[in-house]
């Protein structure tokens, strides 16, 4: 069981309190109804799923209930950092753009 630092609770909490919520930094366009099929495919279906550093969303669902973002290494299963939703995507060496 991982320990995950919740940026809102400001401490590490057991993984049982959290739920993974998919890739981070995907922005739902304001004009979503006008997107082309290709753009919508890219927005909704296509995911990076890289080996190594990933930007992903978690929800502290059984804690403060906030969604937040994390950078995790899928090889070592270690978290590099976690940060609040809406905060700027941190630049991490070795992470895919």
């Amino acid at each position: 069981m991982l320990l995950i630092r919740c940026p809102y609770c400001e401490e590490e909490r057991p993984e049982l309190e959290f739920r993974h919520a998919g890739e981070a930094h995907l922005v739902r366009p304001g004009n979503i109804a006008e997107m082309s099929d290709e753009d919508f495919e890219g927005f909704f279906f296509i995911r990076q799923n890289p080996k190594g550093l990933v930007y992903e969303r978690w929800r502290h669902v059984h804690g403060c209930a906030r969604f937040f973002n994390a950078v995790r290494d899928t090889v070592s299963d270690k978290f590099v950092t976690t940060y609040k939703a809406g905060e700027k995507k941190p630049v991490i060496k070795g992470a895919a753009e």
Binding site: R28, A65, F67, A85, G86
Partner: peptide, 13 residues
């Protein structure tokens, strides 16, 4: 509830 919170917190804050 999770779906609604997700949109409220991250898309329509």
């Amino acid at each position: 509830m999770n779906h609604m919170e997700d949109y409220l917190q991250t898309e329509f804050p």
